[in-house]
Design a protein around this nucleic acid. Structure first.
Lengths: 184, 184
DNA sequence: TTAATCATGTAACACGTTACATGATTGC
DNA sequence: GCAATCATGTAACGTGTTACATGATTAA
């Protein structure tokens, strides 16, 4: 499973509360992996049960109390071992799980006009997302300043680069698709 | 949900057994959506419960008996309505859910040598998958001969084109990533 | 004064994965 | 003789999603 290890990776940068993890996850990893707040809390609980994390209740007076999670040695081991054995997900990475593309496969049931409308909507979303990549790079710079570690931020940059490449490819595909539907 | 509608789409081309659906799904849609055999049988059951399908037991003597599924009018309606309302999945399509990329994000914890090895493995998988696209196009031609409908096969071709575009982009990204790690 | 932020969770349900079970026929 | 293909499923478990619940502080 991945959410587990994503959280482990983030906690390896420093202790955080569930709330902070949720936001950090959404800031940094949500392009590749989405998770709901409720799932994150449940997962933290189960990770603590496995001994990968320890937690401390922090009493606050002006704000609600919070629970601060810290990665344990056993958690660090698990993270390293997960990172160094990229089992099946390397194969899965050469496929693009997408319910949208599955729809497109069946667009023969719609009119060309309707299909075109949907593809054009997708095109706009791609352009929007592409513009939004700036925020991702900003986010990387921000965390880079806090953590200040070139070895780490280099990879953050590489993943952001993937986002760019992916969105450009998506755009170039949808333009080809629209052209095919318009020809003749 | 998507598996449901994928199966509905396939059954709209003609009646099939669970076994045939499983193979057809894996032949045609598995680049975008993966499903286990057991899940397909369970789903067919639940779809019949909703009245989207009807089924008939076919008694065979030389082979095991089978159950033939046929889409109902209500199922056809559901398919059309799903196709024409591309709700949230159009937004999701501009993100690339990938546990592999999440790993890469944390590669700072590994040595550059190890990271390079994993990226090179990924590179090979991309090339392999890229070569495998030929099979996908063959599969399209095969079904195109059976179904003989340009309106339909046009979209099959467009989705295969996505596969190609995606794999080329993945390759181009990993080459950039490897270059970054090798520089200096 | 209304919405957003801070901060945590529970419960129920939906979907995906793994393991197991059966047994005949056909091709290498 | 052994593996693959045909053909169907059940049970248990793991993961993801939706809905609900609470309540103070701060910025527009």
């Amino acid at each position: 499973m991945s959410l587990r290890h994503g959280l482990l990776g983030l906690l390896n940068y420093g202790s955080m509360t569930g709330y902070e993890l949720d936001k950090t996850f959404k800031d940094s990893l949500s392009f590749f992996w989405q998770a709901k707040t409720s799932q994150i809390y449940r997962e933290l609980d189960s990770m603590e049960g496995r001994g990968w994390l320890s937690s401390k209740r922090v009493i606050q007076h002006e704000k609600p109390n919070k629970r601060l999670y810290t990665i344990t040695d056993s958690g660090k081991e698990e993270l390293k071992s997960w990172l160094s054995t990229p089992g099946s997900d390397i194969a899965g990475a050469t496929r693009a799980r997408s319910s949208f593309l599955m729809r497109v496969f069946f667009f023969g049931e719609l009119s060309t006009k309707q299909s075109l409308e949907i593809l054009q909507l997708y095109r706009e979303k791609c352009i929007e997302a592409s513009k939004g990549m700036g925020v991702a790079y900003d986010s990387i710079s921000k965390y880079d300043e806090i953590i200040a570690d070139d070895e780490k931020s280099k990879y953050w940059y590489i993943t952001a680069l993937y986002g760019d490449t992916f969105l450009q490819a998506s755009l170039s595909w949808v333009d080809k698709a629209i052209a095919i539907l318009k020809e003749r």
